[in-house]
Computed example of a mutant assay.
Amino acid sequence: MILDRFRVPDRVAVVTGAGRGIGAATALALAEAGADVVLAARTRSQLDEVAERIAGTGRKAHAVAADLADPAAAGALADAAVTRFGRLDIVVNNVGGALPRPLLDTSTGFLEDAVRFNVSTAHALTRAAVPAMLENGGGSIVNITSVVGRVAGRGYLAYGTAKAALAHYTRLAAADLAPSIRVNAVSAGSIATSALDVVVGDPELRERVEAATPLRRIGDPEEIATTVVYLASPAGGYLTGKVLEVDGGQQVPNLDLGLPDL
């Protein structure tokens, strides 16, 4: 059956930023598709909740509470997967972020921290995962980037630059790792996660954001998760080096921060 191509039976995945939002939805989706999952984030209690939900699917989860702003901590997750489950097949680099701020308030250090958190962490885990994946014939890596890495708006310099770098990192890594390991990305638009609480909780602001989105709504974390499952599974087996835009059709930013001219 065609739906069987969307399954990843008895595969092992690592998902970063898995305590909530897109990461939690993705980890659960991969488990429902047949994978055991290593969950990584800062907050142990959140990871334990996700692990309990995964157990309810009949799959196994291993929670690793770590500060993934440190690339070394991210890299160690590959070994954790092999130690716990004996293999590694799928990596989802979901951790990242950077607060908006005007250009003149964006120090060099702030920009470097954004690149480190969004790109260096993904590279550390990718680099560590490759040998383990090759032991079983290959695998799939999915990076979570953002529409802000493609469209330009005031206040997003650090975050947008880092996410644009992650998108092109995806293309370059795909070239280096083909044909055994596929590398793709999901460019997420405005998704109802904790990062968007200020929008979701303010009816007027939410209406403005939705009106500026062609599909006229905010996305759900599961809509990113299902895209990850597609990319990680045999259903997406002929894709590598691609960035799938799951953003409600955005061509411009849908949240104006109201920063004035200098």
Rank of each mutant, 00 (worst) to 15 (best):
M1L: 11
L3M: 14
D4F: 03
R7L: 15
P9R: 01
P9Q: 08
A13N: 00
T16L: 06
T16C: 02
G19A: 07
G23F: 01
A24L: 02
A25G: 06
T26H: 04
A27M: 04
L30W: 03
A35H: 02
D36M: 11
D36T: 07
V37E: 02
V38S: 01
A40C: 02
A40T: 05
A41W: 05
R44Y: 03
S45N: 07
S45G: 02
V50P: 06
V50R: 02
A51T: 13
A51R: 13
E52A: 15
E52W: 09
T57K: 01
G58A: 08
G58L: 10
G58V: 12
R59I: 11
V64H: 07
V64T: 09
A65M: 09
A65R: 06
A65V: 11
L68A: 11
A69R: 13
P71H: 08
A72N: 06
G75A: 06
L77K: 02
A78M: 05
A81K: 09
V82D: 14
V82I: 05
G86P: 04
R87V: 03
V92W: 00
N93P: 00
N93D: 08
P100Q: 08
L104I: 14
S107Y: 04
T108G: 14
L111C: 09
L111N: 11
L111M: 14
V115D: 03
F117C: 01
N118K: 05
V119A: 05
S120W: 14
T121F: 08
H123V: 15
L125S: 05
T126R: 01
T126E: 10
A128G: 07
P131I: 06
P131N: 08
L134Q: 10
L134F: 08
N136F: 08
G137R: 03
G137L: 12
G139C: 01
G139I: 01
I141F: 00
T145C: 11
S146F: 08
S146E: 09
R150A: 15
V151Q: 08
A152L: 13
G153P: 04
R154F: 11
G160W: 10
T161W: 02
A164R: 12
L166P: 07
H168L: 10
A174L: 03
A174D: 01
A175F: 08
L177Q: 03
A178P: 10
P179H: 04
S180P: 09
S180D: 15
I181Q: 00
V183D: 03
V183P: 06
N184V: 00
A185N: 04
S190M: 15
I191K: 06
A192T: 12
A192I: 08
S194I: 10
D197S: 13
V198D: 11
V199Y: 02
D202H: 10
D202G: 09
P203I: 08
P203F: 03
E204A: 15
E204Q: 13
R208C: 09
P214L: 12
L215C: 08
R216C: 07
T226R: 14
T226W: 12
T227L: 13
P234I: 02
A235G: 13
A235M: 02
A235K: 01
G236D: 02
V243K: 01
E245S: 10
D247N: 15
D247T: 14
Q250T: 10
Q251A: 14
N254V: 12
N254L: 09
L257S: 12
G258Y: 04
G258C: 07
L259H: 06
P260Q: 07
P260I: 13
D261V: 15
D261M: 14
L262R: 11
